[in-house]
Design a protein around this nucleic acid. Structure first.
Ligand code: MG
Ligand code: MG
Length: 322
DNA sequence: AGTGTGCCTGGGAT
DNA sequence: AATCCCAGGCACA
């Protein structure tokens, strides 16, 4: 039985305060706008000025930062009893209580990591960082779901942000569980691993405009399903950086850069420094890193990562996000 | 082992 | 208006 009244997007707590909660969170610790539009995640949308709507932990949320508070609201799921879970994880979504939603948000934004102290340390070690940090406070690394992060970043290689975002949107629409509709716009969960292992997955992805990445997505889904599984992928959080990176690089469509993105943004490897062409140029021009050659070779990639780890320390990946 | 090349797609430049 | 160019790399040879 479908809900008789369609749900609407919520804009701010003022209209209906009882549907919102908040966490203490000063702008120096988190700048929601910078973090959610920085290209770490592709699934947040500024639904109205200052309000960010997206999917997290199988629920649709709207977030808003107001001074020292991070406000949030979680939307109810439609047709819960009709949904069949295809994967191994029977996430029978009971109504989330306030303590649980608080925990999910604190975990996603890693609010237990004090950013102010890290900014001070990076700035003390690096004058160039000080300059940038002034304009970009509160930029922190999200702790994303490993499956979403992996398949999203497989889509980023040799691609444009605008197209990446559109591709991932279509991926969720076609393969992800529908969660709810807000202002008649449907929201879908990121697909489970098993949703991407079907025999026709590659063809369907091609039809969605994935190009040659269709084979990478379906191939990596297969490889993980037949290998370590979703659980094993998540277990890489407890493995050393080098091991996680090695396992990821064995997947089709995953090389050093994508692996480092997944390590940093979903597997708790704060020392991972994803090096793209932009970072490569910065390292040479602004930091004077001496590297022969006119292409980003594996050796140069390693050297640049080592350089920034030496400069910024064990959370170099966090500093680079700024 | 370290390099060079081609690649789906589509928005912006020419 | 067509065509070129190339972007958050990667897999191959
Ligand atoms: Mg390139
Ligand atoms: Mg690989």
């Amino acid at each position: 039985s479908r809900s008789p009244t369609p749900m609407k997007l919520r804009d701010a707590p003022s209209a209906c305060p009882s549907l919102w909660r908040c966490l203490p969170c000063p702008p120096a610790e988190l700048r929601l706008d910078l973090v959610l539009s920085s290209g770490q995640s592709f699934r947040w949308w500024e639904s109205s000025p200052g309000a960010w709507t997206g999917v997290l932990g199988g629920r649709v949320w709207t977030l808003r930062q107001d001074g020292d508070r991070l406000w949030y609201t979680v939307y109810g799921e439609e047709d819960e009893h009709e949904e069949e879970q295809q994967g191994g994880c029977p996430a029978k979504a009971a109504k989330l209580d306030a303590a649980e939603t608080d925990r999910i948000l604190r975990d996603y934004f890693q609010l237990d990591v004090g950013l102010s102290a890290l900014y001070r340390a990076w700035g003390a070690a690096d004058p160039l960082f000080r300059k940038v940090a002034n304009d970009f406070p509160g930029v922190r690394v999200l702790r994303q779901d490993p499956v979403e992060c992996l398949f999203s970043f497989i889509c980023t290689s040799n691609n444009h942000i605008s197209r990446i975002t559109a591709m991932i949107e279509r991926l969720c629409q076609a393969f992800g569980r529908r969660l709810c509709c807000l202002d008649s716009r449907p929201f879908h969960a990121f697909p489970s691993l098993s949703a991407l292992t079907g025999a026709d997955a590659e063809a369907r992805l091609r039809a969605l405009g994935f190009g040659y990445r269709a084979k990478f997505v379906s191939g990596s889904a297969r490889a993980i399903a037949e290998g370590l599984g979703t659980e094993g992928l998540c277990q890489l959080r407890t493995e050393p950086y080098a091991e996680a990176r090695r396992v990821l690089c064995a997947l089709p469509g995953v090389g050093a850069k994508v692996a480092d993105c997944v390590c940093l943004l979903s597997l708790d490897k704060a020392e991972a420094v994803p090096v793209d062409t932009h970072v490569w140029h910065i390292a040479q021009q602004r930091y004077g890193v001496a590297l022969g050659g006119k292409s980003l070779t594996p050796r140069a990639y390693q050297e640049i990562g080592d350089f920034f780890r030496g400069l910024w320390g064990p959370r170099a990946g966090w500093a680079q996000a700024v």
